[in-house]
Simulated scan of single mutants.
Amino acid sequence: MSARASRDPTADHATVVTSQKVREGRAEEYQRWQDRTNTAASEFDGFMAAEVYPPGAGDPHEWVAVFRFSGVDHLTAWLDSGRRRELLDEARELFEGPPSLEVLRGGSPADQAAETVTAVISHEVRPGREQQFLQWQTKALKAQEKMPGYMGSELFKPVEDVQKHWVVVFRFDSRKHLDDWLESDTRRALLQEGDAYFSSYDVRTVGSAFSGWFRFDSGPGGGVPPNWKQAMSVLLALYPTVMVLTLTLGHELDTLKVPVYLGLFLSNILSVSALTWLLMPLVNRALAFWLVPARAGGRRVHVVGALLVVLGYLLCLAVFGLITHALLPH
């Protein structure tokens, strides 16, 4: 097999992880600004995707934005562009300080389950200690692998003229398991040992495969709901959406003899659009008493909310069961 044929197609992919501390009470303005920024980035060559993660439990004001490009050159073109500088100048009043960013070259996308959370840790390695740092990182990895919920990790070397830090990305299957590792005695001992090899490090956590559909205020009354609630809520909106499209658009596409792959693509566009701009905002408002962590106090609220969602499932099944029974030939 030739070198070209065996080459990893993701080797040149580049990702920038941007961390921004938004001033209290400015979260909605920031989200509107971030939407414009994502749109601006999407107009640059090599753009692949953009993701925004609301604050986690560690810092109620720190938002993380992730931009993915097909190569480092394309990514740096965006980072150094006049358009991005204009957007940063426009948003200066929204942030407590300048945003920090880490550039990751290569790496493979994670298989994101609903509960997956990711930690991005950048290290400023002391000059001449790179080899010792790598040995220390291998030791830390072996310790991580023994922790419950560990799902994998990647090490990213500095990118010349772009990124000076060494960056480690590791994933766990839940926020609890990630926190167990971050707060463990084993990790504290490793960090003490690592002081000889790096002068500073910074930890950022991103997670929740559905975060874009759950944008509650980041102040004292807001936060991000647990992933199991997000998954239940998405299913409540997704099932009737798919059924309605199947019973309406699906029939028309079959009549027009549209190829299955194209019909499925069109259906996905409509279902995702309906969820993002119509149904999930409605679900969020209706279930805010259960979804917003600050409001969902006590076991009774958790149980009542979950029962209401299950009741919604049963109602949908009953309604669509009757519809399909009436439509299908006997």
Results as ranks from 00 to 15, higher is better:
232 M>V: 05
238 L>A: 14
227 N>K: 06
271 S>Q: 09
236 L>P: 04
226 P>A: 04
258 V>H: 01
232 M>F: 04
233 S>E: 05
218 S>V: 05
276 T>R: 14
272 V>Y: 13
237 A>E: 03
253 L>Q: 12
235 L>W: 06
246 T>H: 12
268 N>K: 14
272 V>W: 11
274 A>S: 09
244 V>T: 13
278 L>I: 14
241 T>A: 03
266 L>S: 13
269 I>P: 08
268 N>P: 08
235 L>G: 12
247 L>F: 02
278 L>K: 02
244 V>S: 03
256 L>Q: 11
280 M>H: 07
262 L>Y: 07
251 H>V: 15
216 F>D: 11
243 M>P: 02
258 V>I: 12
224 V>W: 00
278 L>F: 05
257 K>M: 04
245 L>G: 08
238 L>K: 10
264 L>Y: 11
225 P>K: 04
224 V>G: 03
271 S>T: 13
264 L>N: 15
249 L>P: 01
241 T>Y: 00
256 L>G: 05
239 Y>S: 09
254 D>C: 06
274 A>L: 10
243 M>V: 11
248 T>W: 01
255 T>I: 11
234 V>D: 01
269 I>H: 06
272 V>T: 15
262 L>Q: 12
257 K>V: 12
223 G>V: 06
221 G>R: 12
266 L>W: 09
229 K>P: 00
266 L>K: 10
272 V>F: 14
238 L>Y: 09
271 S>V: 14
222 G>C: 10
242 V>D: 03
260 V>L: 11
259 P>R: 07
216 F>T: 15
227 N>E: 12
269 I>F: 07
276 T>M: 08
270 L>S: 05
231 A>E: 03
240 P>F: 00
233 S>L: 05
261 Y>A: 15
251 H>R: 14
216 F>H: 13
271 S>N: 09
218 S>M: 05
266 L>V: 14
245 L>Y: 02
240 P>M: 02
227 N>T: 14
268 N>Q: 15
267 S>L: 13
252 E>F: 11
269 I>D: 09
282 L>N: 08
255 T>A: 11
220 P>H: 04
229 K>A: 01
247 L>Y: 06
266 L>Q: 09
270 L>A: 11
234 V>Y: 01
272 V>D: 13
242 V>T: 13
228 W>G: 02
270 L>T: 03
230 Q>Y: 00
264 L>C: 12
227 N>L: 06
248 T>E: 06
240 P>T: 10
239 Y>N: 12
261 Y>W: 15
256 L>D: 04
249 L>D: 02
249 L>Q: 06
278 L>G: 12
225 P>V: 10
250 G>E: 07
244 V>C: 03
279 L>K: 03
251 H>E: 13
225 P>A: 10
262 L>P: 07
219 G>L: 01
221 G>H: 13
262 L>M: 11
263 G>N: 08
264 L>P: 08
246 T>F: 03
267 S>T: 14
254 D>K: 09
223 G>P: 06
264 L>Q: 15
250 G>K: 08
275 L>D: 08
253 L>Y: 01
261 Y>G: 12
258 V>L: 04
